[in-house]
Simulated assay, not measured.
Amino acid sequence: MAAFRSVLNVANSAKLALSSRTMASHPLAGLLGRLNHVAIATPDLEKSANFYKSLGAKVSEAVPQKEHGVYTVFVELPNSKIELLHPFGEKSPIQAFLNKNKDGGMHHICIEVRCIDEAVKAVRDKKIRTLGEKPKIGAHGKPVMFLHPKDCGGVLIELEQE
Protein backbone atom coordinates (compact mmCIF):
# COMPACT_ATOMS: atom_id res chain seq x y z
CA MET A 1 0.00 0.00 0.00
CA ALA A 2 2.85 2.40 0.83
CA ALA A 3 4.42 1.71 -2.58
CA PHE A 4 1.09 2.48 -4.28
CA ARG A 5 0.83 5.81 -2.38
CA SER A 6 4.39 6.66 -3.38
CA VAL A 7 3.63 6.01 -7.08
CA LEU A 8 0.43 8.05 -6.77
CA ASN A 9 2.31 10.96 -5.16
CA VAL A 10 4.93 10.92 -7.93
CA ALA A 11 2.20 10.86 -10.60
CA ASN A 12 0.33 13.74 -8.95
CA SER A 13 3.55 15.76 -8.60
CA ALA A 14 4.36 15.22 -12.27
CA LYS A 15 0.84 16.23 -13.28
CA LEU A 16 1.07 19.39 -11.15
CA ALA A 17 4.50 20.25 -12.56
CA LEU A 18 3.29 19.71 -16.11
CA SER A 19 0.16 21.83 -15.67
CA SER A 20 1.99 24.68 -13.94
CA ARG A 21 4.80 24.59 -16.50
CA THR A 22 2.22 24.80 -19.30
CA MET A 23 0.62 27.88 -17.71
CA ALA A 24 3.94 29.49 -16.79
CA SER A 25 5.11 29.29 -20.40
CA HIS A 26 2.13 31.31 -21.63
CA PRO A 27 3.26 34.77 -22.74
CA LEU A 28 0.89 36.55 -20.33
CA ALA A 29 1.54 34.26 -17.32
CA GLY A 30 1.92 36.32 -14.18
CA LEU A 31 0.36 39.36 -15.85
CA LEU A 32 -3.34 38.57 -15.54
CA GLY A 33 -5.07 38.54 -12.17
CA ARG A 34 -8.60 37.63 -11.18
CA LEU A 35 -11.76 38.27 -13.16
CA ASN A 36 -13.13 41.59 -11.91
CA HIS A 37 -16.42 41.70 -13.82
CA VAL A 38 -18.39 40.74 -16.88
CA ALA A 39 -20.05 43.74 -18.53
CA ILE A 40 -23.48 43.41 -20.10
CA ALA A 41 -25.00 46.07 -22.32
CA THR A 42 -28.71 46.48 -21.72
CA PRO A 43 -31.44 48.50 -23.44
CA ASP A 44 -33.42 48.66 -20.16
CA LEU A 45 -31.17 49.33 -17.18
CA GLU A 46 -33.97 49.31 -14.60
CA LYS A 47 -35.39 46.02 -15.83
CA SER A 48 -31.94 44.38 -15.83
CA ALA A 49 -31.10 45.70 -12.35
CA ASN A 50 -34.44 44.49 -11.00
CA PHE A 51 -33.82 41.03 -12.46
CA TYR A 52 -30.67 40.64 -10.34
CA LYS A 53 -32.33 42.22 -7.28
CA SER A 54 -35.14 39.67 -7.57
CA LEU A 55 -32.52 36.92 -7.33
CA GLY A 56 -31.21 38.44 -4.08
CA ALA A 57 -28.08 40.15 -5.41
CA LYS A 58 -26.80 43.43 -4.03
CA VAL A 59 -27.27 45.95 -6.85
CA SER A 60 -25.86 49.48 -6.92
CA GLU A 61 -27.63 52.58 -8.09
CA ALA A 62 -27.04 53.74 -11.67
CA VAL A 63 -24.01 56.00 -11.95
CA PRO A 64 -23.43 58.16 -15.02
CA GLN A 65 -19.92 57.79 -16.45
CA LYS A 66 -19.99 60.82 -18.73
CA GLU A 67 -16.41 60.41 -19.95
CA HIS A 68 -17.18 56.84 -21.07
CA GLY A 69 -20.68 57.53 -22.41
CA VAL A 70 -22.41 55.01 -20.15
CA TYR A 71 -24.49 54.53 -17.05
CA THR A 72 -23.15 51.72 -14.89
CA VAL A 73 -24.85 49.51 -12.34
CA PHE A 74 -22.81 46.92 -10.46
CA VAL A 75 -24.26 43.60 -9.36
CA GLU A 76 -22.16 42.11 -6.55
CA LEU A 77 -21.63 38.36 -6.58
CA PRO A 78 -19.66 36.33 -4.02
CA ASN A 79 -16.68 35.88 -6.37
CA SER A 80 -17.00 38.69 -8.94
CA LYS A 81 -19.32 41.38 -10.29
CA ILE A 82 -21.58 42.00 -13.24
CA GLU A 83 -21.47 45.49 -14.70
CA LEU A 84 -24.68 46.58 -16.42
CA LEU A 85 -24.08 49.20 -19.11
CA HIS A 86 -26.62 51.57 -20.63
CA PRO A 87 -26.02 54.44 -23.09
CA PHE A 88 -25.32 57.92 -21.76
CA GLY A 89 -25.17 60.74 -24.29
CA GLU A 90 -25.43 60.82 -28.06
CA LYS A 91 -22.04 59.27 -28.82
CA SER A 92 -22.23 56.33 -26.45
CA PRO A 93 -20.30 53.26 -27.60
CA ILE A 94 -22.95 51.21 -25.84
CA GLN A 95 -25.65 52.67 -28.11
CA ALA A 96 -23.63 51.49 -31.12
CA PHE A 97 -23.44 48.03 -29.54
CA LEU A 98 -27.20 48.01 -28.84
CA ASN A 99 -27.93 49.10 -32.42
CA LYS A 100 -26.36 45.80 -33.50
CA ASN A 101 -27.70 43.77 -30.54
CA LYS A 102 -31.25 45.01 -29.80
CA ASP A 103 -31.70 42.82 -26.70
CA GLY A 104 -28.26 43.64 -25.30
CA GLY A 105 -25.62 41.10 -24.39
CA MET A 106 -22.11 40.58 -23.12
CA HIS A 107 -20.00 43.62 -23.97
CA HIS A 108 -16.62 42.88 -22.34
CA ILE A 109 -14.78 41.12 -19.56
CA CYS A 110 -12.54 42.90 -17.08
CA ILE A 111 -9.40 41.26 -15.73
CA GLU A 112 -7.28 42.74 -12.96
CA VAL A 113 -3.57 43.38 -13.44
CA ARG A 114 -0.97 44.28 -10.83
CA CYS A 115 0.37 47.29 -12.74
CA ILE A 116 -1.54 48.76 -15.68
CA ASP A 117 1.56 50.38 -17.22
CA GLU A 118 3.50 47.08 -17.17
CA ALA A 119 0.45 45.24 -18.56
CA VAL A 120 -0.01 47.72 -21.41
CA LYS A 121 3.67 47.45 -22.33
CA ALA A 122 3.53 43.64 -22.21
CA VAL A 123 0.45 43.34 -24.44
CA ARG A 124 1.82 45.86 -26.94
CA ASP A 125 5.12 43.95 -27.03
CA LYS A 126 3.03 40.93 -28.04
CA LYS A 127 1.40 42.95 -30.85
CA ILE A 128 -1.97 43.11 -29.06
CA ARG A 129 -3.59 46.42 -29.93
CA THR A 130 -4.95 48.68 -27.23
CA LEU A 131 -7.95 50.97 -27.65
CA GLY A 132 -6.27 54.20 -26.70
CA GLU A 133 -2.78 55.50 -26.19
CA LYS A 134 -2.75 55.57 -22.41
CA PRO A 135 -4.93 54.19 -19.59
CA LYS A 136 -8.05 56.06 -18.51
CA ILE A 137 -9.77 56.06 -15.14
CA GLY A 138 -12.57 53.48 -15.17
CA ALA A 139 -15.84 53.09 -13.30
CA HIS A 140 -14.05 51.86 -10.14
CA GLY A 141 -11.78 54.91 -10.08
CA LYS A 142 -8.77 52.84 -11.17
CA PRO A 143 -6.69 52.97 -14.37
CA VAL A 144 -8.03 50.77 -17.20
CA MET A 145 -7.11 49.89 -20.77
CA PHE A 146 -9.21 48.06 -23.34
CA LEU A 147 -7.67 45.52 -25.72
CA HIS A 148 -8.83 45.14 -29.31
CA PRO A 149 -11.23 42.20 -29.63
CA LYS A 150 -9.68 41.12 -32.96
CA ASP A 151 -6.45 40.39 -31.07
CA CYS A 152 -8.24 38.67 -28.16
CA GLY A 153 -10.29 35.88 -29.71
CA GLY A 154 -13.21 38.16 -30.52
CA VAL A 155 -13.66 39.36 -26.93
CA LEU A 156 -13.27 42.97 -25.81
CA ILE A 157 -11.02 42.80 -22.75
CA GLU A 158 -10.63 45.53 -20.16
CA LEU A 159 -7.51 45.45 -18.01
CA GLU A 160 -7.94 47.16 -14.64
CA GLN A 161 -5.20 47.90 -12.14
CA GLU A 162 -5.76 46.09 -8.84
Results as ranks from 00 to 15, higher is better:
A39N: 05
A14F: 14
P43H: 01
C110S: 13
Y71P: 01
V59D: 05
E112R: 15
G138I: 11
L35S: 04
R114Q: 13
V63L: 14
V144Y: 02
I94Q: 06
G141N: 09
V7T: 12
F146K: 10
H107F: 08
S13Y: 06
A122S: 13
P87R: 03
L85K: 09
K136V: 09
H140F: 06
E83R: 08
L159C: 03
E61K: 15
G33I: 05
C110L: 05
L131T: 03
N50F: 00
R34W: 05
L131S: 01
P135M: 04
R34Y: 10
K126Y: 09
V113H: 04
L35T: 07
N36F: 00
K15C: 10
A139K: 03
C115W: 02
K102V: 14
V73M: 06
K142G: 06
L159S: 02
P43N: 00
V123T: 04
G56E: 03
E158T: 02
S25L: 15
G154H: 11
L147P: 09
I116T: 09
H148R: 11
K81Y: 12
S54V: 07
L84C: 07
Q161W: 09
A139I: 13
G105P: 10
T72H: 01
R34D: 15
L84I: 08
N99Q: 14
I109S: 05
L131P: 03
R34I: 02
A41N: 04
V63I: 14
L18A: 11
N50G: 05
N79W: 06
G104S: 03
C152P: 02
H148F: 01
N79K: 13
S92Q: 02
I137R: 07
K91C: 00
P43Y: 00
K81C: 01
Y52R: 08
G138P: 09
L18M: 08
P87I: 07
H107R: 04
K134G: 02
L32M: 14
N12V: 15
R129A: 13
S13N: 14
P143L: 12
I111C: 01
L77G: 05
A39M: 06
P93K: 03
F97N: 02
V38Y: 00
H140E: 07
S13A: 15
K81I: 00
P78N: 11
T42F: 03
E158I: 01
E83W: 00
K58A: 09
L8W: 10
S60Q: 10
K134R: 14
H37E: 04
D125C: 02
S48Q: 07
L147I: 02
S6H: 06
P143Y: 11
G89W: 01
A62Q: 08
K58Y: 10
P149Q: 11
Y52Q: 08
M106G: 08
L31I: 15
A17T: 12
L16E: 12
I116W: 04
V120A: 11
P143Q: 13
